[in-house]
Design a binder for these strands. Structure first.
Lengths: 202, 202
DNA sequence: TGCAAAACTTGATCCATGTCAAGTACTGAT
DNA sequence: ATCAGTACTTGACATGGATCAAGTTTTGCA
């Protein structure tokens, strides 16, 4: 388990197609997971926050399948796969833990897919904010006052919307008094309303 | 590794919320993975074909998180988790294999999510058919002549569309000479066209 | 074999969101 | 502090797919 040198915004941590030599744990900052489509567009799979893992999909083929690049200065640890396999040999607890983490990632991905299939634009944006809030809270950060490290365009590409629609959704939440928005700084005034709309109680 | 008694269509193999006591491998038939939303609707996560695994998301919390029920008479094997853990203790190859399978499921789920976010209705239906075709071929079945075991409504709920839209998409593929459709029997005449449309070369 | 129910197709209309276009507000460099 | 470039907001309009509503085909049961 090595501490990696901090990455500056825009710098890539892993590239699609590279052999999977390690897993990464983000310690500070945030990152964007995405892949590049045939047309040259970006398909944003999600955002990585402190405490979260990068690289799990690599187990599929031994190569990473998406790019992960820093949105804010990114501190991380590197866990070489060789080392991990040695530890898995000896530690049943770690075996269960890694299965749990993979299961969790899978479950989350499926849940998100369902979200996309069922909700409308406002619902998706609400869900995005509620989810972010929840994950920040889990790390002891404020669930109601936070800074978006990603652009509206990134959010849009993540949710299958256009950046205009994301902007308008935020606009309506602001007007309804659910949020305060100033550029990328968000204050959540009605977490309940967002969570409800985000989980399909539209 | 036990062989399970064949299930009749409509019968449920695993239920959301049940403790995860085993993984299942489908041997014959097909099944639908779904969860029930707050409004009572079905959110279809996907379909399970022979050779594929059921229950992996259970590693997240030790409980299954979605329902899996048979669409056609379903033959399967049951792999108790206790037994699996014992084997993982001794077999490094199996450890890698289970990680590979989880990674694959994760990668697939993410790729599908991207599909949903980027394509329009025809693209999604084309992708669905191309994917099904591919998975059938992998099991040695015909990639061009097959029977859909799921209803249009199931396909729609899987793709985030309405059943009318799915029906219309199939209609246009038929008119353009890409498919022959007779109820649930499909003949693919232009696999190339479907695959292209399905992978965003719209 | 025939009948009823379910599944599917097709058509007409409406609306949410995409698209195009301007204008405004940040941000970072000099 | 100013300026240029980028990010974001807002508006007007177009459109793909949802919705509503018949019809038609298929399926399973008597």
């Amino acid at each position: 388990m090595q501490r990696g040198r901090q990455l500056r915004p825009g710098v890539t941590l892993v590239r699609a197609g590279e052999p999977m030599a390690a897993l990464f744990v983000v310690r500070s900052g945030s990152a964007k997971r995405y892949s590049v489509t045939l047309g040259g567009g970006e398909q944003v799979h999600g955002f990585v926050l402190p405490g979260e893992l990068v690289g799990l999909e690599g187990f599929a083929s031994g190569r990473y399948t998406c790019e992960v690049s820093a949105l804010e200065p990114l501190g991380y640890c590197r866990v070489p796969i060789r080392k991990l396999e040695q530890l898995l040999e000896r530690l049943p607890g770690l075996r269960r833990e890694i299965l749990r983490l993979l299961g969790q990632a899978l479950d989350e991905s499926q849940r998100l897919r369902g979200e996309l299939a069922l909700s409308d634009a406002r619902g998706r944006v609400a869900h995005f904010l509620a989810d972010l809030s929840h994950r920040l809270a889990r790390r002891g950060l404020s669930p109601t006052e936070f800074h978006l490290s990603m652009s509206r365009a990134d959010i849009a590409r993540h949710l299958g919307l256009t950046l205009e629609t994301v902007s308008r959704a935020l606009g309506t939440f602001k007007r309804e008094g659910w949020l305060r928005v100033r550029a990328r700084d968000i204050s959540v005034l009605r977490p309940d309303a967002l969570a409800a709309l985000g989980s399909g109680i539209a």
